[in-house]
Structure formats: structure tokens, C-alpha cells
Amino acid sequence: MLEHPPNPELSTTSLIPPTPAGFKSGFIGIIGRPNVGKSTLMNQLVGQKIAITSPTAQTTRNRLRGIVTTDTAQLIFVDTPGIHKPHHQLGEVLVQNAKIAIESVDVVLFVVDGSVACGKGDRYVAELLAHSQTPVILGLNKIDLQAPHTASVLDASYQQLAGEYNWQLVKFSAKVGTELSNLQNILIENLALGPYYYPPDLVTDQPERFIMGELIREQVLLHTREEVPHSVAIAIDLVEETEKITRVLATIHVERDSQKGILIGKKGLMLKNIGSAARQQIQKLIAGKVYLELFVKVQPKWRQSRIRLAELGYRVEE
């Protein structure tokens, strides 16, 4: 269950203790191409699932903050959408928000896929970061997938990149958890002395309704894969809590009738499977029983409309 006060947006100073001597804090932007493991990394660092993960690229849409508090520091990780060439209005909003995050954090953790050599996409992100005044650490993820006979060659391609920009390079595996304590220590070293920005027991600044919607969207991606890729948005219509069960009603928005048909499936089986899997995840989130009812609605070209994007919670962040 997420540990946060009833309304995380209204955290009071009474929940925040004074900081001990030498305490450090700051915001760390997790930046990189789509599907390099940014959300998996944040979940591992925070110690529980707050960001959805999927084999499908560009899973993350909103800037999601994960909070790690130790005896000596508070690290606020900002998970961002993968930086890519946008093909629609939604893509432009996502990439713009990722760029804004670069300038609004104290340290950038530039995550790359260490199982493949440095490519054009990585260099594109590197050039964006080079124009920023924010300190950058290059994080070489997925080292568990490196073959022994190619590891040195793969590492060398990123060592060259780090050398060009004078960046520190750290190797780790977000999935397995290898070297994450070392990564966390290096990030703390790069933070300045600072206060608690959030109560020590808080793990995210997002309300449970947002996380519920993301968990439903994750199951849509996992069950439909390429058939209904990014034409999906989730609206939580109702959350009704009783002593015994939490009732959740949600609408899955898609762009075409054919996508609606795929999501519902033969005799409603696909929607039932998505709902069952999402319900199990939401029950873990709130640590209680959940009744989940899903509806599917067609919203033609919602990703191309700024009005529709805003209605569904997607807008360029300040």
C-alpha cells in the first residue's frame, strides 16, 4: 500500500521533522530513450511499484515522482517519458515535458540500455543534455543482459560518450537490482545540503486514483501489445470506499471502433482478463479488496486534440 497522508497534495509541515546535520536532498530526473528501463529503475529504488512497466516503448506519459528517504538524504526521482521523435500531439506533449524536467531538477540520471551499443538515439539525448546546466550522470542499465564476450565493447561505446561530455558513468541492472546501492550513493554525493521536501514515509506525490489508472493502462498494454498500442487513456470515474471493499469504475478511451472490439474481445473475455489482472494490482496498492468495473469508449483522434488531451490529464507541465 502506498504510504501517504489522505491527501498527498496537502502534506503539512507537522509531518516533516527537522533535518539532521549534513542532510542532503534534491530532485533527480531519470532521462533517456523509450524502453531503457527508467520506470523499472524507479520502482526498484523506491522499493515498491508506483510506475507502470511494459515491453511496449513509451509507456510512461506523466512526470511521476518517486521518493526515497534515508537517514542522510531524501532523493526525489522524476520519471519522464522516453525522448523520441514525436508523431502526434500527445508525443509532442510528452517529449516537451521530458525536456522541461531536464531544467527543473538538481541532477540528471541519463539512463541507457547497456545490452546494446550506444546509438543515434542516445547521442540525440546526450546533445540535449549538453545544452543544459544540470549535472549529468550516465547510467548504464541492463548489464545483466550483456554477454561476457561483448560486454567490454558495449561498455566502451558508452565510456566514449561519457568521456566526450565529462560525465560520470555508473553500471547497474534495474531489473535484477545489481549495483543499485552504489548508484544511490553516487546520486547522494551529487546532491547539495537541503531539507525534507516530503514527509519521510511518502513514496510518491501522486494520488491513488492516478496510480489506479496507470495500473489499468499497464494491463491493457500487456494484454493487447501492438494491437492497441498508445491509443489508450484511462479515466477513473468513481472510487467509492466502504469498510469491506473499494468500488472503482473506470473508462478506457480508444480512438477507433476496431480497438474497442479488440479490448472487449469475444464474449467480453479480453476486458474481463484485463479487469481481473488490474484488480489484483490495485488490491496490492490499497491493501484491501477491490471491485473494478471497466467501460470502453471511442474518442476519435484524441491524441491529436489539445482539448481531449487536457480532459484526459495530458498537458505541457509548467
Rank of each mutant, 00 (worst) to 15 (best):
K284Y: 05
Y196G: 10
P229S: 09
K85E: 13
D71G: 07
A156W: 10
D205C: 02
T19K: 08
L2R: 10
Q168E: 14
L238V: 00
Q206M: 12
I252K: 07
R217E: 07
L238E: 15
L10T: 07
C118T: 09
N185R: 12
P20S: 05
Q133S: 15
E103F: 11
S231D: 12
G22H: 00
R247H: 14
T224A: 11
V203L: 09
I76G: 08
E3G: 13
L15Q: 13
L215H: 04
I83H: 03
H253N: 13
V298H: 08
E255Q: 11
F27I: 12
T19H: 02
L271Y: 00
V36G: 01
T70L: 11
R306E: 15
S231N: 14
F172W: 05
K24D: 02
S231I: 06
G32H: 01
F172H: 09
N141C: 08
A277Q: 11
R217V: 00
L263G: 02
K297R: 13
Q299V: 08
I188A: 01
L309G: 06
L202E: 13
Q96K: 15
R256K: 15
V125W: 05
A151L: 05
P207G: 01
I52H: 00
G29H: 06
M270I: 07
P20V: 02
G163V: 05
T70G: 08
Q58I: 07
S115F: 03
T72Q: 12
K38C: 06
M1P: 12
D113M: 09
S115D: 07
I236M: 04
A117S: 14
V176E: 10
R209C: 03
Q89W: 09
E240Q: 13
A126E: 05
V95Y: 05
P135T: 02
V170M: 11
L161Q: 06
S11Q: 15
R225L: 13
K24M: 07
E227M: 10
R65C: 11
Y291A: 10
E179I: 02
N182G: 06
V95T: 12
G139V: 12
I52L: 02
R33C: 12
S25F: 04
L129C: 06
V296Y: 01
V46E: 06
L169Q: 14
G177E: 01
D113T: 07
E218P: 08
D237V: 04
P229L: 09
D201F: 14
S39K: 01
A278G: 10
E311W: 02
M42C: 08
N43I: 03
L294T: 07
K120A: 14
N166G: 05
L183D: 04
V239M: 07
V316C: 09
E226D: 13
Q96M: 11
S115K: 05
L221W: 09
P5A: 13
Y124T: 14
M1H: 13
L169I: 15
I252P: 01
P207F: 04
V176I: 15
H223A: 09
L180R: 04
I245M: 09
P229W: 04
N62Q: 14
G163I: 08
V36C: 05
A156K: 13
E164K: 09
P135S: 11
